[in-house]
Amino acid sequence: METPTSDRRLDRLPKAHLHLHFTGSMRHSTLVELARENGVHLPQALVEDWPPRLRATDERGWFRFQRLYDIARSVLRRPEDMYRLLREAAEDERAAGSSWLEIQVDPSGYASRFDGLTATLELILDAARVAERETGTSIGLMVAANRTRHPLDAKALARLARQYAGRGVVSFGLNNDERRGRAREFEGAFRIARRAGLLSAPHGGELQGPRSVRECLDELQADRVGHGVRAIEDPHLVERIATQGVTLEICPTSNVALGVYDELDHLPLRRLFAAGVPIALGTDDPLLFGPRLVEQYRIAREVFGFSDPELAELARMSIRASGAPDSLKKELLADVDTWLATPADERPD
């Protein structure tokens, strides 16, 4: 473990956020307020005991996590709620130094409230454009399928995402419990998305091991893998990920909160970085886990001893792996160099 070389402000480090779920991005105060306005009863775990104690490595634990998530989703009932969520998410990203937010959403989770899949996606895309104008944070959308549902549902979402490729949708994902749907079953949906020019970014290697990650590479041609941390259990797979330049979206506080690792220092962040694996730090669902993006970089610094040059490289990795326009990537990479070139004691407050 290295000793950090300085303490440049992490909220001034330009970065991209590539692993943030739509409902899970909500501020806790907003959850409580919208529940009151929309007549939704929140369980104690989402009020007095927030953030809730979670452990999802067994099915009962995952069910509890999913139940809390579904309750949180249920407070989003009006178009103005969706606009508010995205505006506040963009504000939080700006405060964290993130100039690109790639937020993932399964439109089918809201379709019954907002007149169907297409109308829901268009509502979210418009909310993203408004949030961009109001905050200066650029936003791309990942349409994400649910691996606990039928692969034909994923194909429908992929066709929908294809219609909006280049119009705000930049990537296609696959989320939920890996134990209930293998990546290979969704190859057809990802083929549709890839042919539309969308990045392939399925979850894998969180609740299951290397095989899950390998299927994301072999069957879904993943550009990024959500989590992917358990690839560390197969050295040959780690070498392959590094050689192919597939980015792992690592979410430290999420991995501990859900029981993937018992303690932060057990997370293989340093080992994967040392092996040359591209890494994009993310938060997953700060509504349920608490810490947001700057805290993930602080964990890299304080728990794993990442120096400022290494933190800058983590930020560059997130930018390079994003679906941001090339012009924005170039600008942000230059800003990272500026952050690193400016001594800590000379940076403005």
Rank of each mutant, 00 (worst) to 15 (best):
residue 2 E to F: 08
residue 6 S to L: 07
residue 7 D to R: 12
residue 10 L to N: 06
residue 11 D to F: 02
residue 15 K to L: 10
residue 18 L to P: 01
residue 21 H to S: 03
residue 24 G to V: 12
residue 25 S to R: 00
residue 26 M to I: 13
residue 29 S to D: 15
residue 37 E to W: 05
residue 38 N to D: 15
residue 41 H to A: 13
residue 41 H to E: 15
residue 42 L to H: 13
residue 44 Q to W: 11
residue 45 A to N: 12
residue 45 A to C: 10
residue 48 E to F: 14
residue 48 E to A: 15
residue 49 D to W: 07
residue 54 L to K: 10
residue 56 A to V: 03
residue 60 R to F: 11
residue 63 F to D: 14
residue 64 R to N: 11
residue 65 F to P: 07
residue 70 D to M: 08
residue 72 A to T: 07
residue 74 S to K: 06
residue 78 R to Q: 12
residue 79 P to F: 04
residue 79 P to G: 02
residue 81 D to E: 12
residue 85 L to H: 10
residue 87 R to L: 05
residue 88 E to V: 01
residue 89 A to Q: 03
residue 89 A to V: 03
residue 90 A to G: 09
residue 91 E to H: 09
residue 91 E to Q: 11
residue 92 D to W: 00
residue 95 A to E: 15
residue 95 A to K: 14
residue 99 S to P: 01
residue 102 E to Y: 06
residue 106 D to K: 02
residue 106 D to S: 07
residue 110 Y to D: 04
residue 110 Y to S: 14
residue 113 R to S: 15
residue 113 R to C: 13
residue 114 F to P: 00
residue 114 F to M: 03
residue 122 E to M: 04
residue 124 I to D: 00
residue 125 L to V: 04
residue 126 D to A: 14
residue 127 A to T: 03
residue 128 A to G: 06
residue 131 A to L: 13
residue 143 V to Y: 02
residue 144 A to R: 03
residue 147 R to A: 14
residue 149 R to S: 06
residue 150 H to A: 13
residue 152 L to G: 00
residue 154 A to W: 00
residue 155 K to A: 14
residue 161 A to I: 05
residue 166 G to N: 10
residue 179 R to G: 07
residue 181 G to L: 06
residue 186 F to R: 05
residue 187 E to W: 00
residue 188 G to V: 07
residue 191 R to T: 06
residue 196 A to Q: 08
residue 199 L to R: 02
residue 199 L to K: 04
residue 200 S to T: 10
residue 200 S to W: 03
residue 201 A to F: 01
residue 206 E to L: 04
residue 212 S to T: 07
residue 213 V to D: 00
residue 214 R to A: 14
residue 217 L to Q: 01
residue 219 E to V: 07
residue 219 E to G: 05
residue 223 D to L: 06
residue 224 R to E: 12
residue 225 V to N: 03
residue 226 G to L: 00
residue 230 R to Q: 07
residue 231 A to K: 05
residue 232 I to A: 08
residue 236 H to D: 13
residue 239 E to M: 13
residue 242 A to C: 05
residue 242 A to G: 09
residue 244 Q to R: 10
residue 244 Q to A: 14
residue 247 T to G: 09
residue 248 L to H: 04
residue 250 I to W: 04
residue 250 I to N: 03
residue 253 T to W: 01
residue 257 A to P: 05
residue 262 D to G: 14
residue 263 E to A: 15
residue 267 L to F: 11
residue 270 R to L: 08
residue 273 F to A: 14
residue 274 A to M: 12
residue 276 G to T: 04
residue 282 G to W: 00
residue 282 G to H: 09
residue 283 T to K: 08
residue 284 D to L: 09
residue 286 P to D: 08
residue 289 F to S: 07
residue 290 G to K: 08
residue 294 V to W: 06
residue 296 Q to H: 09
residue 296 Q to P: 02
residue 299 I to H: 00
residue 310 E to M: 02
residue 310 E to W: 05
residue 313 E to R: 07
residue 316 R to N: 09
residue 322 S to D: 15
residue 326 D to I: 12
residue 333 L to W: 04
residue 334 A to F: 10
residue 337 D to L: 11
residue 340 L to E: 13
residue 341 A to R: 03
residue 341 A to Y: 06
residue 348 P to H: 08
